[in-house]
Amino acid sequence: MSDKLIVTAAPHITGADTTQKIMQRVCIALLPTLAAATVIFGLRALMLTALTVLACVLFEYGWCRLMKKEVCVDDFSAVVTGMLLAFNLPATLPWWIAVVGAFIAIVVVKQLFGGLGHNVANPAIVARIALSVGFAGRMADCPFPESGVDALSAATPMSADLTSEAYRALLLGTHGGVLGETCALTILAGGIYLIATKVISPIIPVTYLGTVFVLSAAVGVDPVCQLLGGGLLLGSFFMATDYVTSPTTRKGRLVFGIGLGVITCAIRFFGTVPEGVSFAILLMNLLVPYIEEHTRQARLGIAKVKRGGAGA
């Protein structure tokens, strides 16, 4: 019993959650949508996802080795990026374009800025935007479902006639689009799983979707179609809630969600590119440091300082 004891500062225990477990839960939440995409678009959807995940993990591993940094692919963050990237691509995309996307996401957007936690914008979103701009034709070439007839008459459901048929198609995802924009039900299920397991706070998705709903109704566009169509659901539950590129406080998340909704609607109603959600998330990502600075929490027992909002 005379052996030396460990002496450290408190606390002496930590919680069960780890970065790895959180990232794994995000992967689990994406699985139903992957399954739906495979049903809708066939095995090539699964292959594409496997390819982007593999490419992302390999780029992360290779870069860390090259830069002689600690290899941290076991944190699963590259897997999440790979899955999200695939969900932003059409199933028919040539494989090498997907690999270019993985390179942009992991090397350019994430690792060049310092790796996990240091990127300014969401890697998958920037990669999607880069590919949309660079390979506009191929990115817009969304395939129709393999099985059955496309329930909608056009490849872009946003402009389709609105019938109850159309709503059902949007919910089930039996329409054209990128992998993760089709089946609203599975995305919702994944989002609810993330909220229930406390991986994400409901504030960003709720305010984002709410803002889009209200603004759509205000300008006389069918709000339900706006919510279910395009990449809004995937973006609001999985991309806008990315920890690294979203605010940390409740107030900040509220501001962030409303900002996302306003920009998305502005692009959708007045813009010419079909990238409302992507650009909204990218633009709001860039504003996060500013939002954080101005939405810090009130501190117990500290009187408010009147100083232009800063430090309040």
Binding site: D75, L116, G117, H118, A298, R299
Partner: peptide, 16 residues
């Protein structure tokens, strides 16, 4: 691991 900016520290802090 690196800080992932999840904000749990700030949201848990009893003093804000």
């Amino acid at each position: 691991t690196n800080c992932i900016h999840c904000g749990r520290c700030a949201n848990a802090c009893p003093l804000g």
